[in-house]
Amino acid sequence: MNITRSRQLELLALLFVLVVLGAACRTQDEVLLATTTSVHDAGLLDELLPRFEARTGYRVKPLVVGSGQALALAARGEVDVVITHSPQDERRLLEEGVVVERHLVMYNHFVLLGPPEDPAGVRGLSDPREAFRRIAAAGAIFLSRGDSSGTHVKEMELWKAAGVSPAGAWYQESGTGMGETLRIASEKGAYTLADWGTFLALRHQLRLEPFVRGGSMLVNPYHVMAVNGARFSRVNAEGAAALVQFLLSEQAQAVIARFGTRQYGEPLFIPAAGLTEEELSGGGR
């Protein structure tokens, strides 16, 4: 009698596994999207993706990672679509033929944040290079993402443009996402570079003040790219193309334009379908 009971238990366990297996194995109509924390965390994808799914019947699985990791996944054909904000690396993937399409979806700006005491005296500056130079000269703590995300890449670009190679006790790397980095910077009273959207979303929890914002040097463009289905046979190229098309559609662009206005008083992203990067940096605030 006891033996049959143990058999029953084993069967139950097996059944459990099978149910989970069965629930998970409907993968044909799935589109795997790798994207950055800044696009996801504020909730923009939760607004956009259900509309796309309702319209096309595809099911989107968003993986939220940094731009660096998203592009690395794309380079191996592990995902179907990427939305990132790391223009240089994106262009490289396009040239290498890893992705077939690359379109500007939206943009906002990076912002240099710091403690209200402003030990490096960067308040009122409009040139981020000058601000970076002053931070380095003052040896004020600067917290870097240090994770090859789009924000990190931008930060390295700015250090280079400022002619400073950041190193020393004042230059620290968090190795975490944007939200976490902002919180650490706030606790430490450090300067840091962030995208405006994430800062806006977390602003009320932070003891950080925006010092340098806007301008062509701090434009933060988000591009959507479809991974090359001819190169990677397991990529869902049709689903990828459909998602790209949707994100550039009037419907999606309208959602982006009003996203965040109710909660944060201003939109987190500015829709930019059809524009080019050059037009953006030329016409930046």
Binding site: V20, L21, A23, A24, T27, L32, R234
Partner: peptide, 8 residues
């Protein structure tokens, strides 16, 4: 098997 990013 297409199992990555699934509960399995």
């Amino acid at each position: 098997l297409g199992l990555l990013y699934t509960p399995v």
